[in-house]
């Protein structure tokens, strides 16, 4: 079933066309990767999908609902959560509190209920803390649970953002370069986490430069170059695609 449908999406900044008439689908349950050289428009595309930027043209449909021009918080409520290439971890809050903030849409406590801290609120918070712990274990960042966000290594910040995004119980998870700053062993652990997330029923759209990871985990790949979609297909197909090889300056895409 088509979960996310992107049609003719375009965005330019001044004279620069960052995203140029891009269309693709993400089917439920798959891991889809978005790759391309630096400046291909991947992050802009993410911003367009999550309400952080408004497209000049095109449509985004998520589970039959139009997404374009929705504010970011409404996109999250609709079931799309994301991480950032430049991580946006709350530095003054502990890692577990970061994940708790990710549960904002899942908890109901308002100002009055929060001020009174009724038994129901406490119970909801206790369960939230437990769930946050589980999510941190899932991404492999549980040892940092009590550390302030500002004090954790860069690679871990990406993992914390994944846990925080998962906390919103999204149907579709958008990951912007989750493996940047991770070593080989950590990247392998991340791949395993992503598979588990997929197995739990969350669809994933991932922007990633680590081709080994991309080829290993994705079911389908979209390749962008200078804002345009130049190829789409299975990892095997993409590795042989002449346009893709050309875009990567003649370098052959490394094998998985």
């Amino acid at each position: 079933m088509t979960m996310l449908s992107v049609r003719g999406l375009s965005k330019s900044f001044g004279g620069l066309t960052a995203v140029d008439n891009v269309s693709f689908d993400v089917h439920e349950g798959m891991i889809k990767a978005l790759i391309g050289p630096n400046g291909a428009g991947k992050s802009t595309l993410f911003n367009l999908l999550t309400g952080f930027e408004c497209p000049d043209a095109g449509t985004v449909t998520f589970l039959g609902q139009p997404m374009v021009a929705l504010k970011p918080f409404k996109v999250v409520r609709a079931g799309i959560a994301r991480t950032f290439q430049n991580t946006q971890v709350f530095g003054e809050m502990s890692v577990i509190e970061n994940v708790l903030v990710g549960m904002h849409t899942q908890l109901a406590t308002g100002f009055a209920a929060g001020a009174l801290r009724l038994p129901a609120t406490r119970k909801a918070d206790r369960m939230a803390v437990e769930r946050a712990g589980r999510l941190l274990r899932l991404v492999g960042a549980e040892e940092f649970a009590d550390a302030p966000g500002a004090d954790i290594p860069h690679g871990v910040r990406r993992l914390v953002e994944i846990a925080r995004a998962l906390a919103a119980a999204p149907k579709l998870l958008l990951l912007d370069e989750p493996a940047a700053g991770l070593n080989n062993a950590e990247t392998q652990a991340l791949a395993a986490s992503l598979r588990r997330i997929q197995a739990d029923g969350t669809t994933i759209l991932i922007v990633e430069h680590d081709m080994g990871l991309v080829m290993e985990i994705s079911d389908e790949i979209v390749v962008l170059d200078r804002g345009r979609k130049i190829a789409e297909g299975s990892p095997k197909l993409i590795q042989k695609d002449p346009a893709v090889i050309e875009a990567y300056l003649g370098e052959e895409v490394p094998d998985a």
């Binding site: 952080f52 918080f73 950032f84 946006q88 971890v89 709350f90 003054e92 809050m93 903030v101």
Partner: peptide, 16 residues
């Protein structure tokens, strides 16, 4: 506290 920390991060958590 999240809004204070990073507004982008807060929005990505579904905070209005």
């Amino acid at each position: 506290r999240a809004v204070h920390g990073t507004e982008l991060g807060a929005q990505a958590c579904g905070i209005d």
